[in-house]
């Protein structure tokens, strides 16, 4: 289990994270939500060891993550950053093969090829396999990057705004793939997501951050309520329920924003 303990992050005078303590449920999909600048990505990147904490620590199965070697950590936790700019002449297949680097150091064995094939099949990327990454659409590229992360075969996946700039269809594809990773493979998925409706439709657990602190955390039913969302985003929410789940409407509030 991943847990964070009194985590702080300061940039000079500015405090981004102000004492966060949380644990993330195993084999569940957890969404980190909150307004811009709440510290969601910072928290996620610290768990992924891409940022150092100013104080406090992150633990994986009770062990402080700084004590785990980079290579060993990469076999347990995979991180996908947002908007990776790739101006490389790289085929989708080669990109996915990078996911095996923590295991084989770049020289792929039979087991690695199996993992690459599985990741590509899992996402239905076979038709794109030989295409160059820089010729793909944004949505296809994000799928290919997710393929690399899946080929890493880790128990934990961290994704920083994976839906950024995607059209609805690709966004749904990505979220469904993450859901399946959780349900079929028992992965623990943490993602930062801005669209509250995607968070409400696909998550098991939601953590809401505001101004560097935990605003509230719990199941979708606990967090996605009109009162809590209004306090979190300072927006007027109307939530309706249907067979397909909750739908949060904040698009055209009847009153002016306070």
């Amino acid at each position: 289990m991943i847990s964070v303990h009194d985590l702080h992050k300061h940039y000079g005078q500015r405090t981004v994270l102000d004492g966060i303590s949380l644990s993330f449920p195993e084999r569940r999909l957890t969404s980190l939500i909150g307004p811009n600048g709440a510290g969601k990505s910072t928290l996620l990147l610290m768990i992924g060891r891409l940022l150092e904490a100013s104080a406090g620590e992150v633990r994986l199965a009770g062990q402080p993550i700084q004590r785990i070697a980079s290579n060993a950590y990469a076999r347990r936790v995979a991180t996908l950053r947002q908007a990776t700019e790739l101006n490389l002449r790289l085929r989708v297949e080669e990109l996915v093969e990078f996911g095996r680097f923590p295991y084989c150091g770049g020289r792929l064995h039979a087991d690695d090829h199996r993992a690459v094939d599985q990741a590509i099949a899992f996402l239905g990327l076979d038709s794109l396999r030989q295409r160059y990454v820089d010729e793909l659409s944004g949505g296809q590229r994000q799928m290919a990057l997710l393929g690399m992360t899946i080929a890493q075969e880790t128990d934990y996946l961290l994704l920083d705004e994976p839906l950024n700039n995607l059209d609805m269809r690709h966004a749904v594809q990505i979220m469904r793939a993450l859901r399946r990773l959780c349900d079929e493979r028992g992965c623990t998925v943490l993602l930062v997501v801005h669209d509250i409706n995607f968070a409400a439709s696909y998550s098991d657990h939601i953590v809401a951050l505001k101004a560097g602190r935990v605003h509230c955390a719990g199941s979708v039913a606990e967090v996605v309520t009109e009162t809590r969302l209004r306090a979190l985003y300072e927006l007027d929410f109307a939530i309706s329920y249907s067979a397909r789940g909750p739908l949060c409407n904040y698009f055209n509030p009847p009153r002016d924003l306070s």
């Binding site: 990147l45 060891r49 891409l50 980079s70 950590y73 990469a74 990776t84 700019e85 680097f101 890493q152």
Partner: peptide
């Protein structure tokens, strides 16, 4: 791939 992506691949 960029330094962040490389780090999350264990570099």
């Amino acid at each position: 791939l960029g330094r962040d992506q490389a780090r999350s691949l264990g570099v």
